[in-house]
Design a protein around this nucleic acid. Sequence first.
RNA 1: GGACCCGUAGCCUAGCCUGGAUAGGGCGACAGCCUCCUAAGCUGUAGAUCGCGGGUUCGAAUCCCGCCGGGUCCGCCA
Length: 573
Amino acid sequence: MKYPFELFKEEVKNFIRASLRELGCEGEVKIETPPAGKGDLSFACFPFSKLLKKPPEKIADEIASRFKESKWISKVVSENGYVNFFVNEKRLAQATIDIIKKLDESYGSLEKKHKKVIIEHTSANPTGPLHVGRARNPILGDTLVRIYRFAGYDVEVQFYVDDMGKQVAALAWGIKNIDPATLTPPSRDKPDHYFVRFYQKAYQLMQEKEEVNREISKIVKECEGGNEEILKMIEKAYMKVLDGIKQSLERLDIRFDRFVVESTFVKNGSVAKVVEALIKSGYARKENGAWYIDMKPFGIGDKRFYFVRSDGTTLYATRDIAYHLWKAERADMLINVLGEDHKLEAKQVEIALKILGAKVLPKVVFYSFITLPGGKMSTRKGRVVYLDDLIDEAMERAYEEVRKRRVDLSDERLKKIAEAVATGCVRYNIIRIQPEKDIVFKWEDALNFEGNSAPFIQYAHARACSILRKEKIEREEEIDATLLEHEQEIKLIKLLAGFPEVVNDACESNRPNLVANYLFDVASQFNQFYRDCPVLRAGDENLKRARLALVDCTRITLRNGLQLLGIKALEEM
RNA sequence: GGACCCGUAGCCUAGCCUGGAUAGGGCGACAGCCUCCUAAGCUGUAGAUCGCGGGUUCGAAUCCCGCCGGGUCCGCCA
């Protein structure tokens, strides 16, 4: 099934290809979007100027003059070396509104790819609560999950649990050896906040006392040896913290299909196989009993990638390779969401996977950490804003705002709305920005409820719902969309028609921020339509039905898009 | 020091991958709009050497090189 705008685009491409062939040349046909008012699609003739030995204006003229008539193209104009194509607006309006009404919740979704994708995200050390510095990871990851599913992929979401590092070992040691009475009270009644204190204290003691350091190191070593008893003890410790992390993410509607535990790959021998295979590959060198791969031939400067220590134990990256081989056997595509501090490790894993002939290599989406105006967040230094605190603060602010506006609603209803606004706001303000861009955390930005924000989009959706509550429109109702001729109606329809392409682009390029930008545009255009085109008081009954349908289609598109961002589409606010 | 990322109005940001027609938005500022479908909205004004300098090109915010500023990494840590 093809979407209307796609059909228009294909027709334009075919027309250009045929025209160029007649003019005597072939070439990549690159279609672009012209500035407002100059058409709906355009084609630049400059690159063909040399080939055809004609000025671009002439080529554009010749192509444009070849146009007679067609289904989707209403007009072709030559201007300054460009060929501008105008869509048949009435046809687009009718086709777009028909298809949105018909597909409803699946409008914008793409055809089934019959491909399995494993998306790994968050994978935070389960030693304490998530803080805002890392909050981009789950939000990016979960949004990608939603987009990939909508784009037709079969997605499994995984959280890789590190149960073998010094961090979890410190946590486990702390819980076992520290008297809770000596700790400051937890910042809130939640397991991750409760247990992080043991981790913090243990970490501090580890640096102060050599014996503590030795004990914790011993735990780590036992884990690497696959000591079941010690691993069980560690599991008991981190599981509670992980529960707390899950609770926080649940508030943002973020869930996982599977938690994959690192030690699994030590226990089942796959890490040993990785080591063996790497040694046999011919790329490995030995030094003082430790094994490494020289990364210079792979273009990574003068770096060594150690995968076995001199005592024979493996490293984090080594185990990560085993994990990735396991994933590669189970999926057609792998996506990882990682902080930019993992760039080198990701490169090491990738090189190893290539050496070992992995079927699938992961595509990694890196993001920059969110920092505080004074610098990096640090749990241990107490310079930190927890995700829970951010959500709570957003909730309070949102509650105040709703209460100010809606004296008519019950407190229960107000809280529901506030929650949707707050969590939407948190997700939106993070997802709307390109992952690689630095974000300096400021409360006023994070809790922005106006302009380019989640509530702005939710508000447009609520407005649409409000109109539709007053006058119903049935899915089956035949409407005459050709009556929609107002400039704002046309603008809105064209924008709605572009949704599937946005989904496709966001998915293919792993840029969820495209969806956020798009929804802001739709909401903004809808607000302008709302200003210019009365719906319930449209006068003409057929026009009213058509406008109602357009409102309904906007509602559907906004809702589907918000769904992709994990933001609740409110019916009133 | 080396590698990678970022640098667009007072602040935040889109566009950069795939070069193209006057660089879009938002916040904040200023001036307006609720007898009318929710003003979390709308309109208008002011505000940009697209970090700097070269190069490639008919054409550069976009590609290449150098520099400056900020971040990340450079461990037999995770």
